[in-house]
Structure formats: structure tokens, C-alpha cells
Design a protein around this nucleic acid. Structure first.
Lengths: 242, 242
DNA sequence: ACAGATGGTTAAGGACTTATGACAGCGGAC
DNA sequence: GTCCGCTGTCATAAGTCCTTAACCATCTGT
């Protein structure tokens, strides 16, 4: 049982993907598959609009058809790479062309990956994940979430309801442990073991003090206490009212 | 024209590529083409050795054959992803298999890209550049930017808010490393590994001194400190107020 | 209601981590 | 050879955080 239902990252925010494709048939196919994989998909069928959307509502990744009416895919790609705001958005190109020179041109223009039609939706998903793994580690698991608390372990930053939270090293480790096992109750002894270390000898009551500091940092004016005290058992992370 | 990214005569470092391929014929073909594009190619024909080499002489990218004697490519890939030192090395898989399920398995195991034989050497080069552009922009001679800091890796010039910044060699490499992974926290040990090199033995505290020198050069009168100290964890580049 | 047990809160000393300034060694430029 | 800039190390200063202990508050069983 255990963390099972709430593995790290499972509550992470959905990666937002913009699909630019004029063939409605294919667009639907892609949308359906990405939807099912837990992506937040939006779609448009025109190069001009793609540029606008990319700029004002920056997606995490763009799936771009090479053959578009009006502005071609290659032009969209070039434009995206030119502007600072969209420079780093990963792009996966979708195309009917199988010519090698086209593929190379696509990659050299700034695309991150390339797939030729007909393509396998599952492979598209796999490639999207491979690209996101590189560019947005935060989207793929370095992030711990519970209720309105978010911890980025690579940045060592913690927020509650979008407000930045300052923690000392021990409070950070303590919270991480709770976030890795949300809801579960830990005795002081267990906490000392897993947060402090097997071989460290400190008073059990020391845990209380750190719990207090963690609470103080987490529960600012008006916010509900998110750490539950279980009398004669220990402490747990718990967002429900108690 | 291409390798492009690596302007002739530029001072940029050659990206180091490890090719793991047991078919000597293909290995030679790949080596020849990568060589010509300005990569620093090394080669081995065995999975075991690939793992050793990757660890002790970390390449910037690995081109990995899926079918190897003894240890299979997929196993090598998995092992590389398991160890901290090799976790982030980009991998492009090379294979004769065209089965979709194999392709997907490759990407899900941690490969960054995938090419089926027979393949075009030029496309391989294009894909390598596309991956490197993401993972090690500095190697492709690109400009590194973060907040109001700009680094031109080909001219070795650094500016903050348009003011020229003077850096020693070590501070330059340190800043480059931070710029390649903005926001991320690195321990002193990690920094020694990636900025100084695996085999160099220096005191961890030495990092502090260079951080201080970097800060002094970067944060002149009144400017906010852009390097964040994360107590008992390390340092990070961070423009937000902290 | 009471005594004992359990948890909350606070303050202070001390342990630990980081910042800083100084210095000697090294190697290249001239 | 001398100058100069860079590097690694150390000693010491400056901060920050951890632990402890003492005292209150609250809960539980009788």
C-alpha cells in the first residue's frame, strides 16, 4: 500500500502541449492519444495562430506539422527560434515527407525531433516524454506535491499556495520525507531513523521542535495546519480538516 | 557548412562522442562522418567497456548500438541511467530493429533519440546536434543566457547587464556550468566533478573560494547576488529574490 | 477533579556551515 | 630573472541552525 496512490510526480501538473496540424483527422488522433496520456492538449490549424498562441500562453512542447496553409511549418519553427520567449520551447515535427534532406533541414532549423507520417501515436508519446525528460525535469518527477504544497528537489525550493517557503536543512528533509509518504503517520523514532539517520542519537523530543518550525514556515496567516499530530503515535501530513 | 554550429577557427571545445558498435564497418562509417563534423570520437565494441569508459571519461553524448555481444544495448542504457555520474549523458540508439515496440522501449529506457539502420550519416549528425543543442548548448557555440547574464562561449566573453565581466578560467567554467543548468542546486562534490574533473583531487572548500570570486566579479555595486547558497546542499544560479 | 502522560512553546548555548581575507606556489609573458 | 595573474589552502570571522532543557497546555483514565 503506502505511497502507492501518490507516487512522487503523480500529482504533478499536466505538461501543456500545443498541436499545430491542419488535417483534422490527424489532429483528432493526436489529441485523443495525448489526452489519454495525461497531457493538457490545445490545438490550432494555422501557422499564424500557432505563433500567437506560443507566445502568449507558452506551452511546454509543440507538435508541429510541416505542411500548413499560409505559413509553412518550417517558417513557424524558424520564427519560434528567433523570439526570446519561445526560443526554448521543444518542437517535434510531423511530416509526410520522407526525404532525408527534409528531415535534416527540420532538425537544423531548430526542431528537437522528427516523425514521418504515417506515425504511431504510441511512439509519438514516447518521443514527447523523451524530450520533456530533458527539458522539463520538473514535469517528470523531480517534483513532490501534496495539496497546495510543492517541492522541487532539484532547485530545493518549496512553495505553499504559490508562496515561497523558507526552510532550514532539517525541515527540508523532514518535509520531503512526509511528501514521499503523504498521509502516513510516523513515530518520532521512525522520523529520527529516516530523516536524521540510523546512527544518530538525539532526544525524541527534538522532533517536536522541528515539527513546530516546519509548521510555522508552512502555515502562515490563516492557512490550515497541514501537519496532523496523532497523539501517542506521531505525526502525519494531512490536508483534510481535523 | 553545418557542424556549423562549430565555426571554423572558433575556440569552442569539440564535443566528445562515444560510439558503441560491434560492427566494424558501421563503426568506421560513423567515426569518419563524426570526425569530419568536428566531433572528438572514441569507440568501443563492447557493453562492459562502454560502461567503464562512460564513467571514467564522461563523454558529451553516446551513440549506442542496440545489439551488442555480451551486454545488450538496452542493458547498457539502463545501467547508464542508474548511476549518478552517467545519468544525464544523452544517448542516441542505433538499431536494425524496426519494430515499433522496440523503438518505444528504447525511448522509455532513457534513450534520447532513435535511428534505425540503414541510416543516413548526415541525419545522424543532425540528430546529434539537435540533442546537444538542448543538453549542452555551450558545446554548439551558442550563447548562454540567464537573467541579465550573457556568455558567448566562442569568444569567452561574459556580460552582466551589458557590462563586461572579467573572469578567470575556473570561474568561467563554473559559471558556464551554472548557465547550462540554471536554477539547479549542485553540491560541492558535483561541482568538483563536472567543473574540475573526475580525477582532480582538491578540497571541497575550494569551491567556496571560487564561488566567492565568481560572486565578486558578477555582483558589482548594488546588483543582486545571483548565486544562491543552499545550506548543507550546495549552490545554484538563481535570479529570484531569496 | 486529579495525577500522570503526552504534546507545544520558548530561549540559549553550542555545533556546524559558510564567508572572507591572506598567502605561498606555480607557470606564462616579457 | 621578474612580473603578474591564477589557484588551492588555511585561519578566522560571521552566520545559521540544532539540540537540549525547562515550563506550560492539553489530554486520558480513574
Amino acid at each position: 500500500m503506502e505511497a502507492a496512490t501518490l507516487t512522487p510526480g503523480s500529482t504533478a501538473i499536466k505538461p501543456r502541449i500545443l498541436v499545430v496540424e491542419d488535417d483534422m483527422h490527424i489532429a483528432e488522433l493526436v489529441r485523443y492519444n495525448l489526452d489519454r496520456e495525461g497531457f493538457d492538449v490545445s490545438h490550432c490549424d494555422d501557422g499564424e495562430e500557432a505563433l500567437l498562441r506560443a507566445e502568449e500562453d507558452t506551452p511546454d512542447l509543440i507538435v508541429l506539422d510541416w505542411m500548413l496553409p499560409h505559413v509553412s511549418g518550417i517558417e513557424v519553427c524558424r520564427q519560434l527560434r528567433r523570439r526570446a520567449g519561445t526560443l526554448t520551447i521543444p518542437i517535434i515535427v510531423l511530416t509526410a515527407r520522407t526525404e532525408e534532406s527534409d528531415r535534416i533541414r527540420g532538425l537544423e532549423t531548430g526542431a528537437d525531433d522528427y516523425m514521418t507520417k504515417p506515425f504511431s501515436p504510441r511512439e509519438l508519446v514516447a518521443r514527447i516524454n523523451a524530450v520533456l525528460r530533458r527539458t522539463r525535469p520538473a514535469l517528470t518527477g523531480a517534483m513532490l506535491n501534496y495539496a497546495d504544497i510543492a517541492m522541487d528537489t532539484t532547485t530545493h525550493k518549496v512553495t505553499r499556495a504559490d508562496r515561497q517557503v523558507r526552510l532550514g536543512p532539517t525541515e527540508f528533509r523532514l518535509l520531503r520525507h512526509f511528501l514521499e509518504h503523504p498521509g502516513r503517520v510516523f513515530s518520532r523514532e521512525q522520523l529520527l531513523d529516516s530523516v536524521w539517520g540510523h546512527d544518530v542519537y538525539v532526544e525524541q523530543r527534538t522532533v517536536d521542535v522541528h515539527i513546530r518550525r516546519l509548521r510555522k514556515a508552512l502555515n502562515q496567516k490563516g492557512e490550515a495546519d497541514i501537519i496532523r499530530t496523532v497523539r501517542s503515535a506521531g505525526y502525519a501530513l494531512d490536508a483534510s480538516v481535523h
